[in-house]
Amino acid sequence: MRYITTFLILFLNWLIWSGMFDAFHISLGVISCALVTFLSHDLFFKEKLSYRNIVETVRFIKYIPWLLYQIVLSNIHVAYLVLHPKMPIEPSMVRLETELKKDLSLVAYANSITLTPGTITADIVDRKHYIVHCISKKVADDLLAGDMEKRIAHIFEEAGYKED
């Protein structure tokens, strides 16, 4: 199953990027995608695929519009800070505890923190703490409220979080 999914993803990318639909180019694509799939089938999916992956994908796609909205908010906030003549910034380093366990959810949470208002993930210590750089006090309070962590935990079905 992993072989087939990896091959399909690679072949779709080949079709989009080559843009040629004659027999010669498509057969080249099939050969090279099959070779790459054979060599590196365990890179994309470490564990066996199951019904859960589909659920996660659908929930992640639902999460993207909210993330885009947060990004626009964050940019307007940063633009306000930059263009304000006095630059009212209050930078601080915050230690943020997390209870997420899986690799993918840790990565998704870190990337979401980096993209949302005024915060950058600087480091992960022992998979328990994030060290986050915040640019103003309001932003740090929003982050510590933990709304986003709940959303990420809901997407990847972490233990300990109830479904809404």
Binding site: N75, V78, A79, V82, L83, T114, G118, H133
Partner: peptide
């Protein structure tokens, strides 16, 4: 705004705030 932030902010981490978000969007 990303470029002005890169020029105006006083310290390395604050500059990362401006460029990392402004450039992406």
């Amino acid at each position: 705004t990303a470029t002005v932030g890169l020029l105006r902010f006083p310290d390395f981490y604050c500059r990362m705030q401006a460029t990392g978000k402004g450039d992406t969007l």
